[in-house]
Design a protein around this nucleic acid. Structure first.
Length: 108
DNA sequence: CGTCTGACCTCAA
DNA sequence: CTTGAGGCCAGAC
């Protein structure tokens, strides 16, 4: 199960995010077994630029704030994508995040 | 080689 | 409840 690197594990989880759903770094980090290493998840997504298959726009921080928006394209594309999926966003903040929150499947 | 920063989170006072 | 500090890994200077 831990044959894959932390980065690959993050990619796998993020790729499994269904349409119209979002997740947070803490959830992913905790799921991977590193609740305090949420930072590394951000680094992984930073590397995810090499992997367009990873919907990083569906990954936000604990507050639902589009922290990575600045790193995406430098524009409101991230917000547009999320809104396109039916997610309500205001001032780069996901509204009703609890309703859109998605947790990874525990494939043991 | 040493230091700081970085898509953050969680615990403690 | 609010504010502060710690922690994790890796890359850049």
């Amino acid at each position: 199960m831990n044959n894959l690197n932390f980065f690959e594990r993050v990619y796998t989880v993020v790729r499994k995010i269904p349409y119209g759903k979002v997740t947070t770094y803490g959830i992913i980090a905790t799921y991977l077994g590193a609740p305090r290493s949420a930072r590394m998840v951000g680094w992984a997504l930073n590397n995810s630029k090499n992997d367009p298959t990873v919907p990083a726009h569906r990954v936000v921080n604990r507050k639902g704030l589009l922290t990575g928006k600045n790193h995406f394209h430098g524009t409101n594309l991230m917000k547009q994508l999320l809104e396109n999926e039916g997610i309500t966003i205001q001032e780069n903040c996901i509204q009703n995040l609890d309703a859109y929150l998605w947790y990874p499947e525990k494939t043991k």
